[in-house]
Write a protein that binds this DNA or RNA. Structure first.
Lengths: 264, 264
DNA sequence: AGGTATTGTGATTAAGTGAGTGAACTGCCG
DNA sequence: CGGCAGTTCACTCACTTAATCACAATACCT
């Protein structure tokens, strides 16, 4: 049929389409039609690895979703919409979904999302931790203290820091490489740097975060599933909120001590 | 548990979450956690209509997706991320998906998406027809002639007309109500209006579109599933492309005649 | 007009997934 | 040590979906 690189494109396309809610056959049919531009059930069946008699159902599914048009001839011919249109199409559908969802959830959310908590919450996966960090930072009213491994300082986090800095929240960051500090100076000019006192380098460095001295998060990098070589890919974090929260109390003490020492 | 309006919010939220790929239990659990803010498997089971012993699996699924955090106490407690974060979360996931998809499709798309076609393609569903109309309009190099039932002139279509008008494509629109014409004059000042000669009102009015005199589309509104009263909700359209395409030839003749008559 | 190949529809079976249930294990309390 | 709540695990049932087959409809060819 086609070469190897093309096959890879095929399978990723099919995978995404399935994730977006299409059946296997429909996904394969659509991909086939994109490369064929236009074709009969026979044509599709040959390149898509879909039983010919099922191409009709798959194409119906696609037509109902607005992804293919049908030529009412004999044999019937199918035509896939352009990739740009496909993108727009799913974008729209998705917007619908998320809007409906957040609307409904907002109506349900209990008003009392308390900031006072007793225990600590655990979070795993680097992306999820980053999300929680952004969450916490964005609730800041007064102060953010953040100490992080450099490779974990993603664009999204810098952005959220910059945003709250703009509305008057003071930012305190542990010192990092010259390169990173230059970059931060660009994006968050008001940030204050402080010297990290303890040796951070011999641990699988993660992050330490304190927001308004009442919400804190700490994370470490761990080897994903004990593989060799031990590449620290996964991250696990714990966080807590509230002035009396044990994690908050501990981190607040640590940071306060560090910041005070720095000032001397 | 809760009143009727709240139950509706619940079910739509669950529906959307399932559509976004969560299992039924996971969706119900998440919704329960959003209204509880925080709770044990017991709590969730009571309000979510999920067997208590399955809450753990559902919560695991949610944790893997980054939608809930876990407190490692006994009993375990679960906490749902905020609605805003939920929105951002799915947005990100979705962006990923669509980007990967369109990338893959672009690599597959055959270069020769010919503009010369023989037959006519059929499209159903109002939204899908609108999408195809936008598609066709956006390919215009020279001229767009468009005649439409007023209620089908959605914002998206006006927008696409405005876009191509800005790049020098001449727009010709059939006359409509004063109100609509005023609106159009705002958004597409360069559009020229022409008088519709035949009586459009006694038919279930749809659309007639011609782009660059080589791509045309015509649609009518039809009663969805022969219901009473016959409300025209659904739309079906046919379109074709290429100078020799029969549909194009016919519509071109019709439009040309109309436009010429108008000029006198 | 009749026969043949191809196209389209529907029925049927098999396999996999997910919902729902209950039993067993764990740790925590008196 | 026994009871109890919390958690995990194994299993059944139902439903969806993939896959195959048989047959009807249609076009095409001679």
């Amino acid at each position: 049929m086609s070469g190897d690189p093309s096959d890879q494109a095929r399978s990723t396309a099919v995978k995404q389409l399935k994730a977006l809610g299409l059946s296997t056959y429909a996904a394969r049919t659509f991909v086939a039609l994109v490369s064929l531009d236009e074709g009969t059930a026979q044509d599709v069946s040959e390149v898509a690895d879909v039983p010919r008699t099922r191409v009709y159902d798959a194409a119906d599914e696609l037509r109902d979703r607005g992804l293919v048009d049908v030529k009412q001839s004999n044999p019937r011919r199918y035509w896939a919409i352009s990739t740009e249109t496909t993108g727009r199409h799913f974008e729209q559908e998705y917007d619908h979904r998320v809007t409906a969802l957040t609307d409904a959830l907002d109506r349900l959310a209990s008003a009392n999302r308390t900031t006072e908590q007793q225990g600590v919450w655990t979070v795993t996966d680097r992306g999820t931790v980053a999300e929680r960090v952004v969450d916490l930072i964005s609730t800041a009213d007064d102060e953010v203290v953040y100490m992080t491994a450099e490779e974990l300082l993603t664009e999204k986090i810098v952005e959220s820091l910059s945003t709250v800095s703009d509305r008057g929240v003071s930012i305190r960051l542990a010192e990092m490489s010259q390169f990173t500090e230059d970059r931060l100076d660009q994006e968050i000019p008001d940030a204050q740097l402080f010297e990290s006192l303890w040796d951070w380098s011999d641990t699988p460095a993660g992050r330490l975060l304190m927001v308004d001295r009442e919400k804190t998060l700490v994370s470490v990098l761990v080897d994903a599933s004990g593989e060799h070589p031990p590449e620290p890919r996964d991250e696990t974090a714990i966080w807590g909120a509230g002035a009396t929260n044990s994690l908050v109390v501990v981190l607040k003490a640590m940071f306060t001590w560090q910041l005070d020492n720095n000032r001397e």
